[in-house]
Amino acid sequence: METPADLDARIIKLISQVVPVKPEQIKRGDRLREDLGMDSVCSMELLSMLAEELDLDVGVEDAAGIRTVADTIALAARFLRAKAAA
């Protein structure tokens, strides 16, 4: 069973693949745009990789409220819970 810390680490690793920032320099509170320098194409790519890696059906509307690393993690956790419940 994946722990919340595992999920954090996985998502931070994904982020570090999209923008050239080392995982250890990425904090949960970082904003994707203002702190990590992701433009809109990058942030969609991040969600796309996340959907693929975790096998989740993330929609365009779900992407709308994602501003920070923590938002991204929360989105993944929410989808994973829904998937487990289904």
Partner: peptide
């Protein structure tokens, strides 16, 4: 360390573009 982060963040804010390197 701070510079790379600052530059990357400022570029996306001012011009909407991500620096790859």
């Amino acid at each position: 360390f701070d510079v790379a982060r600052k530059v990357r963040a400022h570029l996306v804010d001012a011009l909407g573009v991500t620096a790859d390197r």
